[in-house]
Nucleic acid binder design. Structure first.
Lengths: 157, 157
DNA sequence: TGACTTAGGAAATGATCGTTACCTATAATT
DNA sequence: AATTATAGGTAACGATCATTTCCTAAGTCA
């Protein structure tokens, strides 16, 4: 059988520490996955698309229903644990800043139009990503998510 | 002081029943609020905008941080309570169907272009709404949310 | 007014959960 | 091989949480 409850306390101080470790591991694995998606992306536009697809990929079928630890944490914990709340917020801000960087790059390399409001667009894309994860949790298929990704890309034209 | 824990069990069978009652009350209050927003909307486009604003209004500042009972429920409960999971899914589908109806209306009254894929666009708008609620939970101000609403409207052009 | 219902609260009970103490087996060290 | 560290497991403990029981006060109806 699996790991027993008590055994975990050998390795971790308390429940909260277990959660934080799981969260850090989760966030890091997402970073790795994102890096993988970005490998083949050249232009700013391609990087934005790759990032959207990276989150889209975990927003459908089984993995979609499994949900996101950051999103889940943000909804529960937020209220009563300031330290953790900060971690969740930061995880979202990370995505937002990545988008902002890619958009700036896209404007420079002319893969994206120069009339874009960078901060606004980045926030909008973050909104999409989180929305997709919610839809994934509700139950979405790959085609539905891909449709949303493409529509999101069109908002950058 | 406030209502004591035990007293609640006079009125409700168990914890789950209390939650369901709260959820129903919450969903109904949101319906009322949406109806209020829709009062002055004439065209399909106006109705879409009013609906986005209705959700935008609860996605910033204090109310944004308070969060959404449906979204919160969807993230926690989903896994282990099939009956409740259905209620959460249905609450989201309700919004999606509303959007679909408004888009169809908009195509007919020519306030929206006729090239729109109705189902796709409705799903996209639902994605936006849920994304906004997540950003609200993280902490967003009214201007940020309004920016997202307007950007979402632009995706219907 | 007096019996009776009703709403609410305080405290007791049982279940569950977080945590610790202690035991066992395997791996590392001499 | 003997000893010691290490990882894991089981069972006990304490805290917290869901639920029930019992009591009180106020309102209702005869």
């Amino acid at each position: 059988m699996g790991l027993t409850a008590g055994s975990l306390y050998k390795a971790f101080k308390d429940k909260r520490a277990i959660f934080i470790a799981a969260l850090d591991r989760y966030i890091q694995s997402r970073e790795v996955e994102l890096a993988r998606h970005l490998e083949s992306a050249q232009t700013g536009r391609e990087k934005v698309l790759a990032t959207l697809r990276c989150y889209g990929d975990v927003s459908h079928d089984v993995e979609g229903r499994r949900g996101c630890l950051v999103l889940g944490g943000l909804t529960d914990i937020d209220t009563f644990d300031a330290k953790l709340a900060h971690r969740f917020r930061q995880a979202l801000s990370r995505i937002e800043h990545l988008f902002a960087g890619f958009i700036e790059l896209g404007v420079q390399d002319e893969s994206l139009p120069n009339h874009l409001d960078v901060e606004m667009s980045a926030r909008y894309l973050l909104c999409m990503v989180e929305g997709m994860r919610v839809l994934g949790k509700r139950g979405a298929n790959a085609a539905e998510i891909e449709g949303i990704v493409l529509q999101a890309m069109r908002s950058l034209d």
